[in-house]
Structure formats: structure tokens, C-alpha cells
Nucleic acid binder design. Structure first.
Lengths: 246, 246
DNA sequence: GAGTGGTCTAGACCACAAT
DNA sequence: TTGTGGTCTAGACCACTCC
């Protein structure tokens, strides 16, 4: 079992300690950035890049496969690899659990329970759950505080079939989000962000002055092919914004 | 050059046409979902999974590497592979170019130019560009329409050094976004979403009734290590929301 | 049929962590 | 020293597209 004359390289190849596949990725990204290859242009084949860099095709394949996963290029079997559409100038807003977000800022999070009830859904609500009138739901209204200041009223309807112990949770300790994540694996989310003047009860619970708008997040989550929960989250515009960067 | 007794498999292996690495990924994701492995648990090593599935270690490596890239597991060299933290319930909002968004709905997009000017930045504005007072800026105010209804006032400041031809563009044909994307490769974005009552001039340009709030998006883009543009986008709350799903 | 990407192998050498 | 992941090779077979 000798032979095996070839290197097999393994560890690192040339240049500093940068892996070959990463060098190839950088080379291609640079080419795209510098305008050498424009949107829609074909970039060299795996075989060609392998010769150019003196590496095996598998190494080039990994580089290109990762670039494709990152949406920098498109690959078509039997055809070639092409520079992908310029990254749309999009802004990704990540909306996290309110408690995690507050704690992430190093602040204190607290929560008070305004209402906890169970009921059978009237038709209007049932529709939001893709279900018939009469489906069993839980309803909670909570107020979240950051350093003792109200920052969110969370008005949530929960599918009782998916979270039967919902009403027995202590939401001053762990948020409805956290509980639902534990018992019902998240399958999908849809949401809507609006600006809206709050109704009087919300305005009072958030201690807002009249005329001040709210930033409102509607969020529907799905689990096991059903709607798990429908939530409306009201935030006083003067105390809460969605922010981020990338 | 004979020998090569072994299979080399290549194309597909067992089961339907599902690649081995994908079968392994599915197996591990199922295990996590079913609760067999919990957050923080170690999953089998590459060698063990290779034996279990009858595949080479490289194949297992690809499966686990991709799971790590997808944040389903964490890998530590010399230690092992562990189930990652449950995905926080986050909502990703993608905010795209307004023109693309409107056209994507199959509607008509139009744009009117309210103001185009160049000026030297006073201190307050220069600060937003991480620059000294006097930096040369362009300023544009545009109104965007969806099917002849006002949906956005875009108030934008642009770094003249990065987009020298900004004022010569025809923004009724192509948006500032689109022009900036062409001339200045996007490096980073930061943003803020607020609910706010509009000042009188904005309110009139959007034909809003008094007291109605706006959904406001502030966005700063960077290019070539500099701030490229600072924009404020005002949307009438009754006609515009951010939405999405995943 | 020629060219392209998609997958896989059976080894190899390396870096790193724990023992 | 052992066991883990990180990278790489030089082949291989396959599916797909285009000519």
C-alpha cells in the first residue's frame, strides 16, 4: 500500500494560513467588487480555477458552493457559474424576544399580567387561525417594562391545541414567546409593522400622552402545520424603535 | 492505472435520490426536533456518523459543516459538535427599493422630484457622515407614488465624493437607490424604524389628514469605508406597512 | 459528444483540546 | 497520546445542458 506519491497537502497550503478555498472565494469576490466580472457574467469553471490556483477540483467546488449559498453567484448544472444579482439594498430587521432584547442592552426587564383567559373563538378570530368558529384559544395581555418604563403591550391569542398548559405559565418569569418556543417548534412566521394611534386602553397601559402614535408589530407564528399564535405588540413611538445593521 | 477497486460512488447513493450528506443533515435535524438531542448535547463524531451511514468522513464533514453554517450546531475543533441554542423567535424584515417593491406587486411606480441641490454640510449633518463641517453633499427630496397615490417621501443626503454625478440622474426613471448601488458598492447598512407624526410639509406632500402618523425609516449606507448616504423615508401609516414572512 | 456542475471516496496532514 | 474537527487530494461516476 505505498504509492501515494502526491502531496495530499491537508493542513494549510500557501500564503499565511488562509485555506485555499477561502483564497479562491476572496479572489472571486474581489473580482466582482472591482467590476472585473459584472452581474450575469460567467466566472471560470471549476476545472479552470483548479488549474489557476493549483488545487483539486473539490477545493474549488467548495469555494463556489459556499459563494452560491451566500447568494454571490448562481450555479447551473451543465451550464456554468454566474455572478448573481447585486445584493438588493435591503434592510433586514431582526425582531427578537422583547425580554432578550432588553436584557441584551444590559437593562432590567419586567412584565405584568393584565389578563389571562380561555375562550372559544368567534368567527372573526377563528379565521386568523385558519380554523372554524369555536376553536379553543387562550388570550393573554401583558405589559413589558424596561427599567420600570412601559415599552410594550403584548396582546396574544394562542391555539390551545398546541400549547395546552399556556395558562399555567408564570409570565413574570418567562415570556409567552419563550414558552411557545419550548412546546411548539417554530415552523414559520409572518408579520406586519404599522404606525397607529393607540386605542384608549392601550394608551393608558403604556402611559402615553394623547396623540402620540404607536409602532405596532403584528406577528403570526405557525407550528405543526397550524397557526400557533397571533400577537399584537404595541410600542410607544417615543420610547421604542426597531434598529439594526449589517 | 487499474486498481481503484472501491466504489467511488459519485452520483447518488442509496434512498430515492437524496444525497448522503443531505440524509445525514436530515437525520440530525430530526433528532434535534424530536428532542433526542437537546440544546448543548454533543452529537456523534464525524467518524461515528461515517460508520453509521457507511460513508466517508468527508461526506459527514460536509453535512455537519453546513449545519454549523445554518446555526443548527456549533463545532469546536478538538472537542466536538454540539446542538446550538434554539433559534430565537426573530422576525426578519426585508426592506427593499421602493420602486422594486411596488413593481413586484404588479402596480405602477412613479416618482416626482421636489428638490435637488448641492451644499456644504453644516456641522450637524457632517456628523452623520463621520466627517468635518464643509464636506460636499447632495440633497434630494422625492415623492414616490404607487398607482398615483403618494406612499413615500424620500429625503436623502448623499456624499458627493462617492457619487459625483448624483445631480445629473433622472430620478423619474431610476431611483437614487439604484444609482447609488451602481456607482458605490454597498458595504454596510444601518437603519431605524419609528412611528412619528409628520411635520406639515411632509404631511402635505403625502396628502395625509392631520393627526395621522407616519411609519419612518432612517437608513444610512456605507461604501468604501465612508458614509455614502443618509435617507429618511416617510410613509403614511394608513397606506404603507412593512410585511414579510419566512 | 463535450463541457459543466453535483456528489462521493479513501486516504492524508494539520491544529487544537483534553487526558 | 488520543480524539476531535479543518483542510486537501486525485481520482471517480453521475445528471444535466448545449451543440
Amino acid at each position: 500500500m505505498r504509492t501515494k506519491g502526491k502531496t495530499a497537502n491537508g493542513g494549510r497550503s500557501r500564503k499565511n494560513g488562509v485555506p485555499s478555498f477561502q483564497q479562491i472565494k476572496n479572489h472571486i469576490l474581489q473580482g466582482i467588487h472591482a467590476g472585473e466580472w459584472k452581474e450575469g457574467d460567467q466566472i471560470p469553471t471549476e476545472a479552470a480555477l483548479g488549474r489557476q490556483f493549483g488545487v483539486a477540483r473539490m477545493t474549488v467546488n467548495r469555494a463556489l458552493r459556499e459563494l452560491a449559498a451566500e447568494q454571490s453567484v448562481n450555479r447551473i448544472q451543465g451550464v456554468g457559474t454566474y455572478v448573481a444579482q447585486q445584493k438588493y439594498q435591503s434592510t433586514l430587521v431582526a425582531i427578537r424576544s422583547i425580554a432578550g432584547e432588553v436584557r441584551g442592552r444590559g437593562h432590567n426587564h419586567a412584565c405584568s399580567v393584565v389578563l389571562l383567559e380561555k375562550l372559544q373563538a368567534p368567527a372573526s378570530l377563528a379565521q386568523q387561525f385558519d380554523a372554524r368558529r369555536g376553536i379553543r384559544l387562550f388570550h393573554s395581555i401583558l405589559v413589558h417594562y424596561e427599567n420600570a418604563i412601559q415599552i410594550q403591550v403584548e396582546d396574544r391569542w394562542v391555539n390551545a391545541a398546541l400549547a395546552p398548559d399556556y395558562l399555567r405559565q408564570d409570565f413574570t418569569q418567562s415570556t409567552p414567546n419563550e414558552y411557545l418556543m419550548r412546546v411548539a417548534p417554530l415552523q414559520g412566521v409572518s408579520y406586519r409593522i404599522e404606525a397607529k394611534l393607540p386605542p384608549a386602553d392601550i394608551r393608558k397601559r403604556l402611559a402615553m400622552r394623547a396623540g402620540e402614535p404607536c409602532l405596532v408589530l403584528y406577528r403570526t407564528t405557525r407550528s405543526r402545520e397550524k397557526v400557533a399564535s397571533v400577537a399584537t405588540m404595541w410600542h410607544p413611538a417615543s420610547r421604542y424603535q426597531f434598529t439594526g445593521s449589517f
